[in-house]
């Protein structure tokens, strides 16, 4: 057995994510909106969750504005539903970190900025896509029934949603590389590479300068 197998279970396979949904409507929502730059002069990602969409949620006097992230009925949501080109702008990893720490485990959208999707993958957050009609419909359903149970099935490339009025499954697309990484549990490079500890030691032992 190679040391590769020994620890492989330490990267969880993410073949599906279930939970309540939250819609954030609008195209081209950039990383500055997701997490304003001034919250980046910090030493950990720890408290970032409360700053997700901060300037969209609060005015200059810190009064709440209208935003789904402020609404009580969405507070337990874990599936974010967005529109086109979500996460464009800077490459800051703070953006998906803020969403994850707020409670988001998966995002359904019309499309995503590439670097943002890559950063999400590094955290094990699937970013699955569907056409405008499907996404808008899903946003409406969640708005009408916040208790809708949503299941993002990464492996089958579907999103199922169920409430007292509806029980439906729609097709979505998952980038093939992302799908493999999530389903095979190879999305977390830290855990993946940690499982090669023995081979790492062997490589180091062969380097004359490493003592």
């Amino acid at each position: 057995m190679s040391d590769n197998d020994a620890d492989a279970a330490s990267v969880p396979s993410i073949d599906r994510v279930s939970g309540a949904g939250i819609p954030v409507r609008g195209n081209d929502i950039d990383t500055d909106q997701i997490i304003p730059a001034r919250f980046m002069k910090v030493v950990t990602f720890d408290g970032l969750g409360e700053f997700a969409f901060f300037d969209k949620r609060f005015d200059d006097q810190d009064n709440q504005k209208e935003h789904p992230f402020n609404e009580r009925r969405f507070q337990d949501a874990s599936v974010l539903v967005v529109n086109a080109n979500f996460g464009c702008g800077s490459s800051r990893e703070h953006a998906p970190q803020a969403l994850m720490r707020w409670g988001i485990d998966a995002i359904v959208g019309e499309s995503f900025a590439e670097i943002f999707a890559g950063n999400c993958l590094a955290l094990g957050i699937p970013t699955v896509t569907a056409d405008e009609e499907t996404v808008t419909e899903l946003q409406t359903v969640i708005g009408d029934h916040p208790d809708t149970e949503i299941t993002v099935n990464v492996e089958a490339e579907t999103v199922a949603y169920e409430n007292e009025a509806d029980d439906r499954t729609v097709d979505v697309a998952v980038d093939p590389a992302q799908r493999t990484a999530l389903v095979d549990g190879i999305w977390d490079t830290t855990a993946l590479m940690k499982s090669n500890a023995q081979a790492t030691e062997a490589t180091a032992a062969d380097l004359p300068y490493v003592q």
């Binding site: 590389a177 095979d184 190879i186 993946l192 090669n196 180091a204 062969d206």
Partner: peptide
């Protein structure tokens, strides 16, 4: 000299 292995995603793991 620093390559540990090739990862499933095709990248090299480098010491």
């Amino acid at each position: 000299r620093h390559t540990v292995t090739t990862l499933p995603n095709g990248q090299n793991q480098l010491f």
